[in-house]
Amino acid sequence: MTPLFRILFRVNMLCLALSGVGHMPIFKRYYIADIPGLAWLAKFHITLTLHYLTAALFLALVAWIVTTRWLSAPDDRLSPVAQVKTGLYLAIIASGALLVIKNLKGIYMPPHGITLIDLVHLMGAFALGLTALAARIKRWPWITPVH
């Protein structure tokens, strides 16, 4: 991963998380949308559009990393924390994909299914944030060499 790729990935993750939290009606309630320049956070159609666009870039970047790693078969492996993160990413991506499908016209999904998917997506993102923060503080790496 080049430094530029890393920056792009992180900035995109920030926008993805912000627009995601914006799906809940809390930015307006808690005055955050009153901060000059942040009014858009309370506009649902804007946060939804931004979430879709940043999700598209996120998926393309993840697919790039996964494909590159898979095809180049490096002789190292994912650290334990990276395995946890990968699992959380998978849960977030799978639930996100289902939510995108749900939003298309003419789709029926059972109500409790939707609530479950919503919770997996939200809690998954929350857990990923916490794991990433812990990994940052403890300086746990993504990759460990195979001995």
């Binding site: 879709y52 999700a55 993840v62 697919a63 790039w64 494909t67 590159t68 995108v100 298309l104």
Partner: peptide, 25 residues
Amino acid sequence: AMAENVGKALLLAPIAGMAAAAGRI
């Protein structure tokens, strides 16, 4: 409209990433 149009395209985004990485390799 956005969710209906971008939604379908969104599901293709990982394929673009895969193809680009495979092409580079």
